[in-house]
Design a protein around this nucleic acid. Structure first.
Length: 225
DNA sequence: GCGACAG
DNA sequence: ATCTTGTCGC
């Protein structure tokens, strides 16, 4: 199964070259704007298509202020380090269908905490021009010290000796998440926004709601509000 | 050469 | 991601 991915990676070498080009467009810099509307995007695979959802919340009240979904046929298998080929386009479709443009976006995956500095969050950032951060449930790359399981604490994660992201504990005694900037923000911004958008669960609210919306059924517009 | 490997 | 019931713990 691991060998299969090696074969796919070889077959996908052209996409890797493209990925290296796109990585040059990523801009990591401090976010100046004040954040109020935070969006979360996630996808599910209910068959032969990708079903993506985007949900925007007001971090001041945690109310959902907008949501949208987008579906596209599946065109790629899952290949580690090339996740965006499989679900990126659908995520963008849902994100760009929102009526209210969010200040920042959280993606269910890695930002620059990636072997080639270009995770799914970078893809969404470069293609939307919006500030984006990646929040992954598990590790793809990098080394780090174990994190103390106390909400708000984190440890830096390095790839090739370079600081790329952080392992952040979003709740006491719960498995931490991997946070990294994807575009137009830095690591501090990504950490602050992730914590600001986190409610009573391990996963930040925008992502939890997007995951839920992507999972159930619906058409191709805003759900109800 | 042998593992590891987001969702 | 997806296939799936009950169950241990705060």
């Amino acid at each position: 199964m691991t060998k299969k991915n090696e074969l796919l990676r070889t077959r996908y070498r052209q996409y890797i070259e493209e990925q290296l080009e796109l990585a040059l467009k990523v801009r990591i810099k401090p976010l100046k704007r004040k954040v109020r509307y935070v969006a979360g995007v996630d996808a599910s695979f209910p068959g032969n298509y990708v079903r993506a959802a985007a949900v925007v919340i007001d971090v001041a009240t945690f109310e959902t202020v907008d949501e949208a979904v987008g579906e596209l046929p599946v065109e790629h298998p899952y290949v580690p380090t090339l996740l965006y080929l499989r679900e990126g386009p659908a995520l963008l479709k849902a994100l760009l269908s929102l009526r209210r443009t969010p200040d920042v976006v959280l993606v269910d995956g890695q930002g620059i905490l990636h072997p080639r500095r270009f995770g799914e969050a970078c893809y969404i950032g470069v293609h939307s021009g919006m500030p984006v951060a990646g929040v992954a449930k598990s590790r793809l790359a990098g080394r780090h010290r174990p994190v103390k399981l106390k909400k708000g604490l984190w440890e830096p994660v390095y790839v090739e000796g370079e600081l790329r992201g952080a392992v952040l504990c979003t709740r006491d005694n719960v498995k931490p998440v991997y946070v990294s900037p994807g575009h137009l923000m830095d690591l501090n911004d990504a950490l602050n926004i992730t914590l600001q958008a986190t409610g009573s669960y391990r996963i930040p609210e925008p992502l939890r709601r997007a995951h839920k919306l992507a999972g159930s059924s619906g058409s191709s517009r805003t759900g109800c509000g």
